[in-house]
Design a binder for these strands. Sequence first.
DNA 1: AACCTGACGGACA
DNA 2: CTGTCCGCCAGGT
Length: 109
Amino acid sequence: MQREPTAFESRVYDAVNMIPRGKVSTYSAIAKVVGCGSTRAVGQALRRNPFAPEVPCHRVISTSLRIGGFNGTLEGPDIERKRRLLIKEGVEFDASGIVAPQCVYLEFD
DNA sequence: AACCTGACGGACA
DNA sequence: CTGTCCGCCAGGT
């Protein structure tokens, strides 16, 4: 059974939806935009993501420019898929799997 | 209302 | 470099 998104989650989804194609953002950036100092709260909202394809949650990475998690996991085939998807959108990755800083979108609104 | 959890981050050993 | 701890805030039970 589904539930309506809270005001907080709506802000998170809205912010994520603002990320242009070929770019990514970080949890801390999103957290700042939605007005909370906890990246964890953002992670929870994205994990729940009721708007799966609508909200490009795969464009959100950790502040260290490493890919965070995806589909509820921190590692595994899902993460690999996320990486491929980002590359497909034009996001560049370092040999270590680090996202190119130029592809990071930090300013919203 | 109380307690636990978490797709994190930063500090420290 | 890795592993551990604490703080952070909202959601779920």
